[in-house]
């Protein structure tokens, strides 16, 4: 059974239907890239997986459990599904270490010592052991994003959602963040990422999902999809990038 199952997901913003019946299953350890033009619904789809966007219709199952709209379900869901945002969204009033420690302490009720140990481990993993006492505004964008990844990992999620995690970064900072994501993928973390980094998607992902006008238009092995797009839309999307 898949780790995450999306079935017939529908979502509208007012009169605008952004998701028109999405079916997608994500296996444990799989790395999936969602690609497509802006407005194709890929970010919205990603945000439905941890309940940041409520769905109008359809079924979301995570780890065999159906997710309803009840708050308790949502909180339980979010313990399984971590998320990293385009704009990092670090808490500016806490240090890097406190950013990572906070949720294990207040949500998982871990002791301070426990939370600190995990936080230090995660910050070391993303290469920021020497920046733990820095506040977000003392860190570069790439460093902030790596703290955000550490913060999500400290909750030990089963799936990590990445919403254009390098789009807000200066070009020279993109690689340090991608290196961390690549490392996670190699360690077997289940990843779902909305990305514009096509080369990265091609190298790292197991499955590519091309979205077009609120539907999954084409899906498959990245190598295959890129070199041999079956639909004119994907063809022009890939062509437009080259």
């Amino acid at each position: 059974m898949s780790l995450v199952e999306l079935h017939a997901i529908h979502k509208s913003f007012g009169a605008l239907e952004v998701l028109k019946g999405i079916d997608l299953s994500i296996d444990e350890g799989q790395v999936i890239a969602l690609i497509g033009k802006s407005g194709s619904g890929k970010s919205t789809l990603l945000r439905t997986i941890n309940g940041l966007e409520a769905i109008d219709d359809g079924v979301i199952m995570v780890d065999g459990k159906k997710i309803s709209e009840r708050d308790t379900d949502l909180l339980a869901l979010r313990l399984q599904v971590g998320m990293v945002f385009q704009q990092f969204n670090l808490f500016p009033h806490y240090t890097a270490l406190e950013n990572v420690m906070l949720s294990p302490q207040v949500v998982k009720k871990q002791s301070k010592a426990e939370a600190r140990e995990i936080a230090e481990e995660m910050l070391a993993k993303v290469g920021l052991a020497d920046k733990m006492m820095h506040y977000p505004d003392q860190l570069s964008g790439g460093q902030q994003q790596r703290v955000a990844i550490a913060r999500a990992l400290a909750m030990k999620p089963k799936v990590l959602l990445c919403d254009e995690v390098t789009s807000a970064l200066d070009p020279e900072l993109v690689n340090e963040v991608l290196a961390v994501v690549r490392q996670l993928a190699e360690e077997g973390m289940t990843l779902v990422m909305v990305t514009h980094e096509m080369r990265f998607a091609r190298e790292v992902c197991d499955k590519l999902v091309f979205m077009h006008q609120g539907r999954i238009h084409e899906t498959g092995d990245p190598e295959e999809v890129f070199s041999n797009p079956k639909t004119p839309e994907l063809s022009s999307f890939v062509g437009g990038l080259a």
Partner: peptide, 14 residues
């Protein structure tokens, strides 16, 4: 900002 609400929600906070 909305991002602060979303980040804390996605970390499981009520």
């Amino acid at each position: 900002g909305k991002g602060q609400w979303e980040a804390s929600a996605s970390l499981g906070m009520n």
